[in-house]
């Protein structure tokens, strides 16, 4: 049974009686039942803190935090150029499909710098659907193949490193991809006018993205617990709705990145990237109108399939 408690997701995420959903065990059970080899998927989940219970996740989280800390100074220095390069289509007139033309390449570029290798995931990648409960067997097999390919790339790029560091780099390549793509894409969809072109510089660019690519996080009760006014039985899944913050003031929206022991490690860089984007857009000489923003069919992420944008010179 799943319980949704909409008023304060932070209570759920901070509760010591709630832990992560058993993603690895679910994949292992599925592989056994269906006779599939999902070993690379299960192994990848062993290196993703979000998929590990409290007892196992601290060293894995430390390894990823170490890689992020080491890469962050260079990335921060490169962010203005990176954003300017990828978002340049917003500065000249024309029709633009901004997901494949701008957002996805920008996120891929950022993650490659963070993970330290050319990730090479295409727009249709399934790798970051690793948290999906809905993905069918055929897509899980494709995801497994993609994860094997990623592991091979890491092994070629870092032949002398151990399994733990390779696992951390794999996690970096997987983790932030759709969360950041979805946050940027759905925030642009929320900000761009739909009725008539308006100058980009005049739009309401705030310090925090107005939308999140991660609308919820599931937790499982490891003991009977009271969350707010709701009793939750051991074994129940509790859904923390992060998208409730979409209606909060900008200062409160950093709560999009979660709370407690699994607070998103990518939060500072994501906010820095958004700040650069805001700086660029607030000085843009162009106007824009959103023509279409159909959402991707996805049970985990809130992510536009396409962002059709008309950019013009006012």
């Amino acid at each position: 049974m799943r319980v949704e408690i909409r008023d304060d997701p932070a209570d759920i995420l901070r509760s010591p009686a709630l832990d992560v959903a058993p993603y690895g065990a679910r994949h292992a059970a599925l592989a056994l039942r269906l006779g599939l080899d999902l070993s690379a998927t299960v192994d990848a989940l062993e290196h993703i803190p979000l998929a590990l219970d409290r007892a196992r996740h601290p060293p894995v989280r430390r390894a990823i935090a170490g890689l992020i800390a080491a890469a962050s100074p260079d990335i921060r220095a490169e962010l203005p150029a990176l954003v300017a390069r990828h978002f340049a289509p917003f500065l000249r007139s024309g029709h633009l499909e901004a997901m494949t033309g701008v957002v996805q390449p920008c996120v891929a570029d950022l993650l490659a710098r963070l993970a330290g290798f050319e990730i090479g995931l295409g727009p249709g990648t399934l790798v970051s659907r690793i948290f999906s409960q809905a993905l069918g067997p055929a897509r899980r097999r494709r995801m497994e193949d993609e994860i094997r390919e990623l592991r091979a790339r890491i092994a070629r790029a870092f032949p002398a490193t151990g399994e733990d560091e390779r696992g951390a780099r794999l996690a970096l390549a997987i983790l932030g991809h759709d969360a950041l793509t979805g946050t940027l894409g759905s925030s642009l969809a929320a900000l761009l006018p739909r009725d008539a072109p308006r100058p980009l510089a005049g739009l309401d660019w705030e310090a925090t993205p107005p939308r999140t690519g991660v609308p919820y996080i599931d937790r499982v009760a490891v003991a009977d617990v009271q969350i707010g006014s709701r009793p939750v039985d051991r074994g129940e899944t509790v859904r923390a709705r992060l998208d409730v913050y979409e209606h909060a003031p900008a200062a409160a929206r950093s709560a999009f990145f979660g709370a407690g022991t699994h607070l998103c490690l990518g939060r500072p860089l994501s906010l820095d990237l958004w700040a650069e984007l805001v700086r660029l857009m607030a000085a843009a000489p162009t106007a824009a109108r959103l023509l279409a923003a159909p959402m991707r069919h996805d049970d985990v992420f809130h992510i536009p399939e396409r962002l059709e944008v008309e950019v013009s010179l006012p």
């Binding site: 269906l34 809905a134 993905l135 069918g136 067997p137 055929a138 897509r139 069919h297 049970d299």
Partner: peptide, 20 residues
């Protein structure tokens, strides 16, 4: 359910998700 989905995927050479 996943086992049935896999059977149908193989029968018709399609990709079918659980939520569908």
């Amino acid at each position: 359910r996943f086992e049935i989905i896999m059977r149908l995927e193989e029968e018709f050479a399609i990709e079918l998700d659980d939520d569908e």
